[in-house]
């Protein structure tokens, strides 16, 4: 199950938080991005954030049902990463359904990412489309429980 381990490498426990502090889109993205930076997987935080917000300008990554998946693809990213943050208060995000975001997956991809990583991200994106998976993520108490949602 190489893919399973790959998810754990892509989204190690230090990139997972179940208590996001920010309640507003830009701040929330910055909060999660800082975690990726702290894990030394981005070399220039500003460049990365610029890519994320530029992407955000095209259309919102708040995909509705309380989920957002901001993402940035730039050379400033050293290693494909996925950070997860759950907000208990809700984040104002101008989502497609105008509802607050509770689950945020911040994706960082270098210019020449391996297909394996992209494949995992695409699987996660697909899984997020299903209500039962979103419910399970909302209930998750530990990184382990979060991994299991995607590994099933």
């Amino acid at each position: 199950m190489a893919a399973d381990f790959a998810l754990r490498k892509l989204m190690p426990p230090d990139l997972i938080t179940f208590d996001l502090q920010a309640t507003e889109k830009v701040a929330a993205i910055k909060e999660l991005a800082q975690k990726i930076k702290d894990a030394k997987q981005i070399n220039d935080l500003d460049t990365y954030l610029k890519a994320v917000f530029k992407r955000e300008e095209e259309y919102t990554t708040g995909i509705g049902n309380g989920v957002a998946i901001p993402h940035g693809k730039t050379a400033a990213v050293l290693k494909s990463s996925l950070a997860f943050g759950r907000s208990n208060k809700g984040i104002t995000y101008n989502s497609m359904d105008n509802k607050p975001v509770y689950l945020m997956f911040l994706i960082a991809v270098p210019e020449n990412s391996s297909n394996e990583h992209l494949q995992i991200l695409s699987q996660i994106a697909r899984k997020l489309m299903h209500e039962e998976n979103r419910q399970a993520i909302l209930r998750a108490q530990s990184p382990e429980e979060l991994y299991q949602v995607f590994e099933n």
């Binding site: 993402h71 991809v109 994106a125 697909r126």
Partner: peptide, 18 residues
């Protein structure tokens, strides 16, 4: 989608589910 990371697959999943 433009970055080809997430929306492409979310859209595919939702079309398949629907």
């Amino acid at each position: 989608c433009s970055t080809g990371i997430a929306h492409t697959y979310m859209a595919a999943e939702n079309l398949e589910t629907a």
